[in-house]
Design a binder for these strands. Structure first.
Length: 114
RNA sequence: CGAGCAGGCUGGACAGCUGCGGGCAAAGCCCGAAAGGGCCUGCCUGAGGAAAGUCCGAGCUCCACAGGGCGAGAAUAACGGCUAACGGCCGCCGGGGGUGACCCCAGGGAAAGUGCAACAGAGAGAUACCGCCGGGUGCAAACCCGGUAAGGAUGGAAAGGCGAGGUAAGAGCUCACCAGCGCGCAGGAGACUGCGCGGCUCUGCAAACCCUAUUCGGAGCAACACCGCAGAGGGACAAGAUGUGUCGGCCCGGCACGUCCCGAGAAGGUGGCAUCGAGCCGCGAUGGCAACAUCCGGCCAAGAUAGAUGGUUGUCCACGACAGAACUCGGCUUAUAGGUCUGGUCGCAAA
RNA sequence: GGCCCGGUCGUCAAGCGGUUAAGACACCGCCCUUUCACGGCGGGUUCACGAGUUCGAAUCUCGUCCGGGUCA
């Protein structure tokens, strides 16, 4: 089961498959990030919380934490990329500042931070 | 004080900053020919007791507002009531458990029929292995014939239980009590209970098939309705009777549609849908043991469409369990840290 | 969101309520062989979990937990 969230544009399932197949990935215990340059020039973002995370409460919690972390970093990110954040098992038990730290490190490794 | 029982309520709080969904308002700005859309600002509002499982019952929508016959299937099961309805709830009867408060029960029918009861055991509605008693043969051990089912052994279950009389030994063979069956009387709305009499009886399993009584049309908001976009090419059959679809199976009957095959393309949006209702609240009043009903007063409370309640800081405490609406209600079941209130019970101590 | 199926050793699976739950492949131990393979012998199953019906449940009934399928 896949959930998506919109920041600047929508993500559909074909976009998810494209980013998974062609994008670069960065891994940490509470977050996995996929990055792929797109043609539209917009910044697009999607979140995946699989059923492995837990029940509906834990999946919602993971989505909120990731969305808040991205909201704090969004102005630092250069546009023109599709980003997908995948929640992991520790995500629902962790603070959004921790997710934010992991996310900024991964985006810096990807080289798309201003 | 300790232990335990039943029922109800609650399900972290406050403040600052910063974010999200919905609604309303009006000033400004942007896009547009207009209708309108977007941004910004302010105000209001924003998950649960189980939102869960999808186990029942309904509303709503479409198929014919649900038709006749046959067949099949499913569900329920003491009795009386409540409810829109229910497999739910309340009361009560019967049975079981607990010292008790109280709890549990799919609780119709086994003399309508069929079937099963492995192993053990002589025998599982049919009998005699060891016994007991009488008679016969035999020196004896033992054997044969007959009676009997009290005792032993096996089993979950052994032909009503137990005691007395009776007898060759025994047996409801006779009697008292208890259990079961039938009849009568009394009480009760009824299930049933109590009393009396009679004959002397019959295992268990129907969550085995089945029988009896009652109920049940199907599908489900991904139902369905409307709008828009795209595509509509080729072939065969038929020209009032067939075919197809639908009424979960068949027949009758009804309704709708020309039908079928091959091929190509497709994109979604709006309503349904958000409270005006079998609605919620009240230590309200009346009736009722209660479930509940009637009346009175007050209230209008999420509505997304990849899916909204978050983050962070500080203070406090019991350090926060189970867990997130997706068409809507009434129940049931399952998960659940604690806190709190009310009413009974048992034990100990005191008065 | 709705509606349907299923759960038996590691895997594939049989199993009319009644013995110690058949088999096959795999695994482990022993024997055979100089060694391996083949062959022979032996071993291992809370019948997903919890209740109930029954004398007795893998089987029948109910409830949980998993795993599938299907509907735009």
């Amino acid at each position: 089961m896949i959930f998506m969230d919109v920041f600047c544009s929508i993500c559909e399932n074909k976009d998810f498959r494209r980013v998974y197949a062609k994008g670069r990935s960065f891994v940490s215990p509470c977050l996995v990030t996929y990055v792929l340059k797109n043609r539209s020039g917009d910044l697009r973002m999607g979140i995946t919380t699989s059923k492995k995370i837990g029940n509906a409460v834990k999946r919602s919690r993971s989505r909120r934490v990731i969305r808040e972390a991205f909201r704090m970093l969004a102005k630092e990110v250069r546009p023109g990329y599709d980003l997908i954040f995948v929640a992991r098992g520790k995500t629902p038990t962790v603070k959004s500042t921790d997710v934010c730290r992991a996310m900024s490190r991964q985006l810096r490794d990807a080289g798309i931070l201003r």
